[in-house]
């Protein structure tokens, strides 16, 4: 019974990993670039949400909707921050050096953004974890002895919706075709009129949305936020993405769930100390046996959507 309960919990944890892993894989798939600001965006949504819920909403808003509204603003801040990152790192560097496939510099500068933002939040709020005033704990269903919290169910629903919506966007919409065209052949896309400077911000906007949502889900489900909440989630999401295959959305979904499951099962059987060994062991094993990941392309590291 406890095992089933752990399984349910792992799906909830996994869905946070999935959302962040999808953000990573989207940027890799389209721009071939590992965006290190993703953990920060995740943290930013949670911390801004907490700060607003704690210190009061803007525009004099208050009432029972305070925490959802606070998280909504947190997600908006994550999206804006992500667009700012595009402006200040990716676009500037691309226009300056003229080669959008040279990603060492955006990679390093996004790492710089991660450290600056994280430490700014630390200076502002300290390093302590803060309790997030989410929905009360009695929103729990007891299904035959298994406890399922309603917010967890809602979160799972949102994640499913987001992933299905994103897949639809990429496969069926005009902007999605533009993104895939840039992913496969930026040059050919360009001469057909796909404007990189218009399409690339869409990737960053979606990244901000996904990370913001994941941060909000985390705050609601675990009732706690901190300036370093992005570190562990971010690295595990990367592990999930690699297990699933770089650049594959469904790979990131499966990989994120597998990492969540591995984590919960390891805690259950061997205790919390062994989690990192298990997750990263799984990653190394995947790289040895199936370097392209579960759903990835054969050209390793050049994952395309």
């Amino acid at each position: 019974m406890l095992l089933i309960q752990q399984f349910v919990n792992s799906i909830m944890l996994g869905s946070v990993y999935v959302t962040v892993a999808v953000a990573f894989t989207l940027t890799i798939g389209v721009l071939n670039f590992l965006n290190f600001t993703i953990p920060t965006l995740f943290m930013l949504a949670g911390m801004v949400g907490w700060a607003l819920a704690h210190w009061g909403l803007p525009f004099g808003l208050s009432g029972p909707m305070t925490w959802p509204l606070a998280l909504f603003f947190g997600i908006c801040v994550a999206i804006l921050a992500s667009l700012l990152v595009e402006r200040l790192t990716f676009r500037y560097l691309k226009t300056k050096y003229g080669d959008s496939t040279e990603h060492a510099i955006p990679l390093v500068s996004s790492l710089g953004f991660l450290l600056v933002l994280e430490n700014l939040v630390r200076i502002g709020y300290g390093t302590d974890a803060q309790r997030f005033p989410g929905p009360s704990a009695d929103l729990t269903m007891n299904i035959g002895g298994i406890f399922v919290r309603i917010p967890q169910l809602v979160s799972l629903g949102i994640v499913v919706l987001i992933v299905v919506g994103l897949t639809w966007l990429l496969k069926r919409s005009r902007i999605g075709r533009g993104l895939r065209a840039i992913a496969e052949n930026p040059d050919a896309a360009n001469i057909l009129g796909v404007d990189t400077n218009r399409v690339v911000p869409v990737v960053f906007m979606l990244t901000g949305l996904l990370c913001g949502l994941a941060g909000a889900l985390f705050a609601v489900n675990y009732g706690e936020v901190s300036p370093q909440m992005g570190e562990d989630i971010g690295t595990k999401a990367i592990a999930g993405m690699v297990v699933g295959g770089l650049g594959s959305i469904w790979g990131a979904v499966l990989g994120g769930l597998i990492v969540g499951l591995t984590e919960m099962m390891t805690i259950h059987f061997f205790g919390a100390d062994t989690v990192q060994v298990a997750v990263w062991g799984l990653l190394l094993l995947t790289l040895l046996l199936r370097p392209q990941g579960l759903f990835g392309h054969h050209s390793i590291g050049k994952g395309k959507l």
């Binding site: 065209a181 496969e184 057909l192």
Partner: peptide
């Protein structure tokens, strides 16, 4: 320079992108 990861139809749709 056709998009080999796309279908024939999607390639033609890229021609009417704008």
């Amino acid at each position: 320079q056709i998009f080999v990861s796309m279908t024939v139809h999607e390639n033609l749709q890229m021609g009417v992108y704008l």
